[in-house]
Amino acid sequence: MLKKSLISVLCLSLLVPAVSLAETATHAVKPLTAHQERMKTCNADAKGKKGEERKAFMKSCLKGESAAAVKKAPEAKKHEKKTAKKPKTYKKLNSQQMRMKTCNVEAKGKKGAERKAFMKSCLSNK
Rank of each mutant, 00 (worst) to 15 (best):
K78W: 05
P17D: 12
L21C: 14
E65R: 09
C103W: 02
E52D: 14
R54W: 07
A44L: 14
K110Y: 00
S124F: 03
N94H: 12
H27M: 14
T41A: 09
G109Y: 03
G64Q: 10
T41Q: 11
A69H: 07
V29A: 15
K91I: 11
A107Q: 07
K50N: 13
P17G: 08
E52A: 12
A22F: 02
S124M: 09
Q36K: 02
K85P: 00
G64C: 07
A117F: 00
A68L: 04
K82N: 05
N94E: 09
M100V: 09
K49W: 01
L32A: 15
E53P: 07
E53R: 13
N125K: 03
K77L: 07
H35Y: 10
M98Q: 15
G112D: 02
L21E: 09
L32P: 09
L21G: 15
A22H: 07
S20Q: 10
K81E: 14
E53D: 14
G64E: 08
V19I: 02
K30Q: 13
K4L: 07
S5Y: 03
E106R: 13
N94T: 13
E53T: 13
S13F: 00
E106H: 11
L14V: 03
K110F: 00
S121A: 07
Q36R: 02
A68R: 11
C61T: 12
K86V: 09
T89Q: 02
A69L: 06
T24P: 03
K116M: 03
L93S: 11
R115P: 01
A44C: 12
S124E: 11
S66V: 01
Q36A: 03
A25I: 04
T102Q: 14
R115I: 00
A34T: 15
K78D: 09
G48I: 07
K72R: 15
R54I: 05
L32G: 12
V19H: 03
N104V: 04
K63A: 05
S66R: 01
A84K: 03
M119D: 05
T33H: 01
K85N: 10
A113F: 00
V16I: 06
Q96A: 09
K4Q: 09
E106D: 14
T33Q: 02
M119I: 04
K86T: 14
A84Q: 06
G48V: 06
G51C: 01
A18L: 00
K101I: 01
M39T: 14
Q97R: 12
C103G: 07
K111Q: 11
K63P: 01
P87N: 06
A25S: 13
Q96E: 11
L62F: 02
K88N: 10
A44G: 13
K49Y: 01
A34I: 13
A69V: 06
M98N: 08
E75M: 05
P31G: 13
N94M: 09
K86C: 06
R115Q: 05
R99E: 07
K116H: 03
L15K: 13
H35Q: 15
A67S: 11
A56D: 10
K77R: 12
D45W: 08
F57M: 15
E65G: 05
L32V: 10
K47D: 11
L93D: 11
A34W: 06
K88C: 08
K77W: 03
N43E: 04
